[in-house]
Simulated assay, not measured.
Amino acid sequence: MEARELRLGYGDRLVVDGLSLDLSGAGITAIIGPNGCGKSTLLRGLGRLLRPRGGQVVLDGADIARLPTREVARRMAVLPQAPQAPEGLTVSDLVARGRHPHQAWYRQWSTGDEKVVNAALAKTDMLEHAERPMDELSGGQRQRVWISMALAQDTGLLLLDEPTTYLDLAHQVEVLELVQRLHSDDGRTIVMVLHDLNLAARYAGRLVAMREGAVVTQGAPAEVLTEGMLEEVFGLPARVIEDPVTGAPLVIPLGSHATPRDSDQAAG
C-alpha cells in the first residue's frame, strides 16, 4: 500500500495535504502524533472510508478509488475507531459479516465460510463465546470480536484505528499481543493508529510520526522516538531510555514539575 500526494479533509477543512507514504512490506506500522494531527483521517483515506480530494492510494499497484468495493474488501480489512454493533447481535453473527465480500447472489453462506469464521474466532480466543450477545462482553472481548470479523475477511492487510481505545492497560496489551501474533504467525501487514507511544514502540516495527497533517519522520522505533522528535511533534519534554524488558525505546515524560535531579534519574 502506498499514499501518493494524498489530500484529505472534511467540509471546508483540509486535514492532510500532499502526504506521501509507502507502507509496502512494513510488517506492523503504528501511526503516532498529537490529537488532531490527521492520524485517523489518514487511516480513513487509506481504507477508502474517506474520498481523497487529491492524490491516490495505491494497493497492489492499483488505485483503490478505481477498484470495485468488493475487490478492495477482499484485499484489505478496516476496523474503525470505537465500532458499534446492533443491539442483540451475537458474536458469531458479527464475525460472519466479514464473509460478505466473498459472497454473491449465486454463492451464499457455505461450510467454507463457517470454517473461516470459526478459525477467526479461535485465533482470537473467542470461539467459546460464539453464541453470546455482543453487549454481554467486556471491552477487551468486544475488541477481539471486531478483530475476528476483520480476520474473517481473509485479507493480507489490516487497518486498525486506535484498537485499544477505552481499554484498560491489561486489555490494551491483550489486543496488541493478538495483533503481533497476526503478523508473526500469518504474515499479515498491519497499519494502526495508536496514542500510547510506549506500546507503539513495543509492538510495532515501524513508526510514522505525524504533525499538522504531514509526516515528520518515520522508521524503526529507536530512530523515531527521540527526545528532539517528542519536543517537536508533541511539545513534550521527555527522556527516552531503553525498556528493560524488551529493549525498545521507553518514553518518560518530564512534565512541568520535573527537577534536574528527576531528569538525571530518568536518564540513568
Rank of each mutant, 00 (worst) to 15 (best):
L6Y: 05
L6E: 04
D12K: 15
L14Q: 12
V16N: 09
S20H: 07
A30N: 05
C37D: 04
G38K: 07
G38D: 06
K39H: 10
S40T: 14
S40A: 12
R44H: 10
G45E: 04
L50F: 03
G54V: 10
Q56K: 13
L67Y: 02
V72H: 00
V72Q: 01
M76Q: 15
A77G: 10
A82Y: 05
L89G: 02
T90A: 11
V91P: 03
L94A: 07
A96W: 11
R99W: 09
H100D: 04
P101S: 07
P101T: 06
P101M: 04
Q103I: 07
A104W: 12
Y106G: 00
Y106I: 13
T111H: 04
G112N: 01
G112W: 02
E114D: 12
E114V: 03
A119N: 09
L121R: 04
D125L: 14
D125C: 14
M126R: 12
M126S: 12
H129V: 05
A130L: 12
D135K: 02
Q141E: 15
R142T: 10
R144I: 12
W146F: 15
M149C: 12
L167N: 10
L178H: 09
S184Y: 00
V208C: 04
V208S: 01
R211M: 09
E212Q: 14
V216Y: 02
G219C: 08
A222S: 13
E223Q: 15
V224N: 09
L225A: 11
M229C: 12
M229V: 15
L230C: 08
P237Q: 04
D243A: 03
D243M: 08
P244A: 06
G247T: 06
P253S: 10
D262W: 01
D262G: 04
Q265G: 03
G268W: 01
